[in-house]
């Protein structure tokens, strides 16, 4: 295994960002990224995720008072060209006036390393990305996926202290995105570099992140492992942004959740409530005391499962079932949700 990177722990301390026009892109943010960790910053456009990445990279500076620390060293005043971070841009930013190999060697060239070293390092990186054959191509002769690999090779060639990826797969089609996601995941694990990956795609975030930071309106909405974010979203925003979440209005009383369509067990403080649950956690069951009455609105056969949209006392509820049964529209069914799968998103908004 070739030595690829030095990994640092990255800390942000009260980093906020106000644009010249007065827009507050980022509220004061504290963030800790462990050495070698892959942290995914997830959120809709305009949530501040790219701004955060640009502050870490040194492309933007935080408002006065904010600090960026690499292994405890304050790098806030260090400009990007001396910060030693590899960046993969959404548009790749490959230099059209250079060949693939020249692009990959560029970081060493500006560091005035010997030509032989430039070449061997570039070839080593190209081999790692399995694109040796493309070394002498021009950039405009490459496909999107190939450009992506060149961009990764170029960013890693300088042995960066961290790798920053800004929506690197957004410009690609769905199938390629899937392939490259797996590849990037493998690469990051193998290289063991501290990586910060910005995306708006929750599937990418789930697959790649050791931890995920979900951002909204310039604030962190939640930080946690993919499992925590999915299973225990702390807010309505996180619940909605990641996966599909059903939300059923009703009342909690005496250890049960009561709706107009019947009641199910749920121990929660009494009062008006909204029960949230994932489609795969609900099951279609025979009629019984712990099941809700529902009517089938639509059913989509998806091969490995069937996705049902049910009407539960006027609320649309999505349920995934892997049973080999067929449902027809208008059919009356019963729905059970185990109490441990119910999520409390707080009182109804």
């Amino acid at each position: 295994m070739t030595e690829v990177a030095r990994s640092v722990a990255i800390k942000l301390r009260s980093c906020s960002k106000t644009f010249p026009d007065g827009t507050k892109a980022l509220q004061p943010l504290d963030l800790d990224v462990g050495a070698g960790e892959t942290l995914v910053i997830l959120g809709p456009s305009g949530c501040g995720k790219t701004t955060t990445l640009r502050i870490i990279a040194g492309l933007d500076e935080p408002d006065p008072g904010g600090k960026v620390l690499f292994d405890g060293e304050d790098v806030t005043p260090v400009p990007i060209e001396r910060r030693d971070v590899g960046i993969v841009f959404q548009s790749y930013a490959l230099f059209p006036n250079m060949s693939v190999r020249e692009n990959v060697a560029y970081g060493l060239r500006v560091r005035r390393r010997p030509a032989a070293e430039q070449r061997s390092r570039a070839d080593e990186m190209l081999a790692m990305m399995r694109i040796e054959a493309l070394a002498d191509r021009r950039i405009d002769q490459l496909s999107g996926g190939q450009r992506q690999r060149v961009a990764l090779a170029r960013a890693l060639a300088i042995r960066p202290r961290a790798l920053l990826l800004d929506e690197p797969l957004t410009a690609l089609d769905a199938k390629l995105r899937e392939t490259l996601r797996v590849e990037i995941d493998g690469l990051l694990r193998r290289v063991g570099i501290t990586a910060i990956y910005v995306t708006h795609d929750q599937a990418e975030a789930m697959a790649l992140g050791d931890r995920i930071v979900v951002m909204e309106h310039g604030r962190v909405a939640q930080i946690g492992s993919p499992r925590e974010i999915y299973r225990a979203p702390k807010s309505r925003f996180v619940a909605d942004f990641i996966g599909t979440m059903n939300k059923l209005p009703g009342r909690a009383e005496a250890g049960r959740f009561v709706t107009a369509a019947g009641s199910i067990p749920w121990s929660r403080e009494a009062g008006a409530a909204e029960a949230a649950f994932r489609p795969e956690d609900a099951r279609i069951v025979p009629a019984g005391p712990d099941a809700l009455r529902a009517t089938v609105t639509t059913s989509f056969f998806l091969g490995d499962r069937t996705r049902l949209v049910l009407d539960v006392a006027g609320t649309a509820v999505t349920v995934d079932s892997s049973e080999r049964a067929a449902w027809t529209r208008g059919e009356a069914v019963h729905l059970a949700v185990p109490p441990q799968a119910l999520i409390d998103l707080g009182d109804r908004a």
């Binding site: 040194g58 933007d60 500076e61 006065p64 005043p77 400009p79």
Partner: peptide
């Protein structure tokens, strides 16, 4: 504002 003013 250091990088900004350097650019300016």
């Amino acid at each position: 504002m250091r990088a900004r003013s350097r650019d300016d």
